[in-house]
């Protein structure tokens, strides 16, 4: 088993403190006020702004990874659709739209089982017409 030396441990502590200090100058996409609201609801108490930023960065990283996986699923689905050679729908599907199917597939890898309610309509053509109109 590798036991880190005191010098290496000191370097790691310095790196961690430097990273936390760099968060003071970093503005996450998730605003601090939003993070403060939700962590206060959970009983988290810490006046340090750096830890609030750390929570925001960790959450942003998680959402970014989920969104990246969903994007890969979306691109893979579009690639499969191109092979079908539907020229008319090819232009429409080139838009990278986040859908529930791609999102649920991406979230399944992270232990989140998301199921959305089925869409009910009189007949299948009703849903297709509304979708084509939106696009």
């Amino acid at each position: 088993m590798n036991h880190p030396t005191n010098e290496g441990r000191h370097d790691d502590d310095t790196a961690l403190s430097d990273f936390l200090a760099s968060l003071m100058d970093y503005t996450p996409t998730i605003p601090d006020e939003l993070v403060e609201h939700y962590i206060a609801k959970s009983g988290f108490q810490c006046p340090d702004v750096r830890l609030i930023r750390l929570v925001a960065v960790a959450t942003q990283k998680f959402i970014t990874e989920v969104a990246t996986d969903a994007l890969q699923h979306c691109k893979a689905r579009q690639t499969g659709a191109v092979k079908d050679k539907r020229d008319k729908q090819q232009k429409q599907d080139k838009r990278l739209t986040l859908t529930m199917d791609d999102l649920s597939k991406a979230l399944r890898e992270y232990g989140v089982n998301m199921k959305h309610q089925e869409y009910f309509a009189d007949n299948p053509s009703v849903g297709m017409e509304s979708t084509s109109r939106d696009e």
């Binding site: 998730i30 939700y38 962590i39 609801k41 929570v55 989920v66 994007l71 986040l98 979230l107 959305h116």
Partner: peptide, 29 residues
């Protein structure tokens, strides 16, 4: 949008926002 999506379904965006808030609360708890 920063990842590369150009659009989103409304329900999917709501789901992502819900997961975001739940992840925040999970970390804090």
């Amino acid at each position: 949008q920063s990842v590369g999506f150009t659009g989103s379904q409304s329900k999917a965006l709501d789901a992502v926002a819900n997961i975001l808030t739940r992840h925040l609360q999970t970390l804090a708890r």
